[in-house]
């Protein structure tokens, strides 16, 4: 591995000021499961690695019971989310996504923030946070700003983060009652796999427990960046949700996707799987809502 200096600041401000001193020769590192591989392979050649691990406020996972807002520090590991009973109970879509990332050894170290910032089209962690209308809090040399998680991604490996900016945390706004959410990572094998396609659905029903008041259909590996199938979502709003309409939504989502042929799978196969799994995840949402009511 190429030589570098390892810096370990304990505050966000210090991390940003280190970056200011070394600018483009420095890289931020969180869990390191992607960065270390890139440095080893020579795809990244930093003179300074600025570790964010010692910044305590970035490692907090907290739900404000009064407001219902969930706050996920960017350094929260996949394993922490996976093992949290609160996440399992109230945000099943997050559990579905993070519990199948890499291996346990990777999940024990890899962070949700790193998963977002790495910005691969297959980022499992991005889909649930988009479906839940997550907001990313960014902190940089010129202060703080926030952005919808869905707007973080520009292209593969590219985010809206400016030079020296850090993703501090993600907040998930209060969920309406009668909300269900589910994600499937569809691949060829269960272990150490990237998804062939990733599908997350979130549905909120009105008090009649039939009519859809909110829908999110989010797709991974279906375009250069994680995407929402807006037309498919629109179809569901104000309608009674059943299998037939979910099939229709799946068809629209498949048409909206920009799937491609790749080493892991063919475009037509990905489209077919979007059709199938939008329906299945939608039905799973209904089941979750009924179980919780």
């Amino acid at each position: 591995m190429k030589p570098f200096k390892y810096l370990s600041p304990t505050t966000v401000e210090k991390a940003i000021s280190y970056y200011g001193e070394h600018s483009e020769t420095a890289k931020f590192i969180a869990g390191g499961t992607d960065v270390i591989v890139k440095v080893k392979e020579g795809w990244m050649e930093p003179d300074y690695l600025i570790s964010l691990k010692k910044i305590e406020e970035m490692g907090e996972l907290h739900k404000n019971e009064a407001t219902g807002e969930l706050s996920i520090g960017a350094l929260v590991t996949h394993a922490t989310l996976e093992k949290s009973l609160m996440i399992q109970n109230e945000y099943p879509i997050i559990y579905d996504a993070v519990s199948n990332i890499g291996s346990l050894q990777v999940r024990n170290v890899g962070t949700i923030g790193g998963n977002l910032i790495n910005a691969v089209p297959s980022a499992d962690g991005a889909i649930p946070l988009i479906a839940l209308d997550g907001v990313a809090l960014l902190h940089g040399p010129s202060g703080e700003r926030s952005a919808q998680v869905k707007d973080l991604f520009i292209a593969p490996y590219k985010t809206i983060l400016k030079s020296g900016e850090i993703l501090k945390k993600i907040t998930i706004p209060t969920q309406a009652p009668n909300t269900g959410s589910a994600y499937i990572k569809f691949g060829r094998r269960a272990a150490m796999e990237l998804p062939l396609i990733g599908i997350g659905v979130l549905l909120t029903l009105e008090d009649d427990m039939e009519t859809c008041s909110k829908a999110r259909i989010c797709l991974g590996v279906a375009a250069p960046t994680p995407m929402r199938a807006f037309d498919a979502e629109k179809l569901l709003i104000g309608k009674k949700i059943n299998k037939e309409i979910l099939i229709e939504a799946g068809n629209i989502a498949a048409d909206e996707s920009k799937v491609r042929n790749s080493i892991r799978g063919k475009a037509w196969h990905r489209k077919e799987m979007i059709r199938v799994h939008v329906k299945r995840m939608g039905l799973k949402c209904l089941e979750i809502i009924k179980n919780n009511s």
Binding site: G32, I36, L49, G102, S103, L104, Q105, N108, V109
Partner: peptide, 21 residues
């Protein structure tokens, strides 16, 4: 980080020592 042959525990949790500085 793919094969697991370097697995050690850090505070009881299995991690990849080849990806840990």
């Amino acid at each position: 980080g793919a094969c697991g042959s370097c697995t050690v525990h850090m505070d009881g949790k299995p991690v990849r020592s080849c990806l840990t500085l």
